[in-house]
Design a protein around this nucleic acid. Structure first.
Lengths: 162, 162
DNA sequence: AAAAATATGTCAACAATGCTGACATATTTT
DNA sequence: AAAATATGTCAGCATTGTTGACATATTTTT
């Protein structure tokens, strides 16, 4: 590994050598993940702006479409945010007619969440440019490679329970 | 593709069928990316909390370590944020002794950025748990697979220039 | 039936990190 | 000398996260 001796610039020691992968760190993955994710969410961001919504709304619309009938508690557990934080965006989505809340048939304290037609269309519209991006990234990759990518994404996540 | 007929719940039509990959969308990648990224940044978040810093500080410390001597303009271009937004976190990092600013030797209007010893150590400490996570995700993967992941991360990014 | 627990909602305040607009200073280029 | 550039700073605002406290409806437990 490199020496990386600190240099003195104006009487204070600083490092003028780049921090590289020599330290055993996959900086290309760390940075690739940052840039990729940033660009990945910029697509739906542009669409959401027109409706006056943000990323938080996107997540709610997405998961409610993925699992219609999920409860508020389910959603909080998925998003890992507080109910007060969710309440703001959820209220706006309900008021705007993208999501409906229905009292649970067994437990009537629950509020089961469903997308309206507009809600489903919004979810699809938001997913579309993201899918385009994924398709482009997958272009020219073997089925094996794509599997590796999906395995990677799962492997990067926290293990359930704990 | 599925019928996905809207149901009526309390006189308003809603969808009670999950939105699945039938629509030609890789939801496993979309969601995998979301969960993976969230968990990925939670590791350094925990470390930063002790110093009273946030994610924005992390990014600055990271890139200044990766490219010591970069100017403020370089950093703004990399992060794609406004100078006012950068100013807040950069000032705190300079005041706390993690980063030093040196007037450019050719163009003295520039402020070249360098990490101090503490700044380099912080960058390494923040990268460490992320590297652990990457290593775990890569565990059991072939060199071919890992290459695919890196290609994917690049493919997901916006093309330069434009 | 009464008490406790649960699911959800709401009010209020605050923090981090983006943004825009305006203006100041030092330095370099024209 | 004037214009352009690199940076800094002040002020205000938006989004989205947080805590804490308390209210309501409903279900479960005692």
């Amino acid at each position: 590994m490199g020496r990386q001796t600190p240099e003195r610039k104006n009487t204070i020691e600083v490092y003028d050598q780049p921090l590289t992968g020599e330290a055993g760190i996959d900086f290309d993955v760390i940075e690739g993940f940052f840039f990729a994710y940033r660009d990945f969410i910029s697509d739906p961001d542009a669409i959401l702006e027109k409706s006056g919504f943000g990323r938080a709304h996107h997540r709610v619309v997405h998961f409610v479409n993925r699992e219609p009938g999920m409860t508020v508690a389910d959603l909080l557990d998925t998003l890992k945010i507080t109910k007060q934080s969710l309440a703001r965006v959820l209220k706006q989505l309900v008021d705007s007619g993208y999501i409906r809340q229905v009292a649970g048939p067994e437990d009537r304290r629950q509020r089961k969440l469903y997308p309206t037609r507009a809600g489903r269309e919004l979810a699809l519209a938001l997913a579309e440019p993201q899918q385009q991006r994924i398709a482009r990234a997958f272009d020219g990759m073997t089925a094996e490679d794509r599997k590796a990518v999906k395995r990677f994404l799962i492997g990067m996540q926290n293990t359930r329970d704990e």
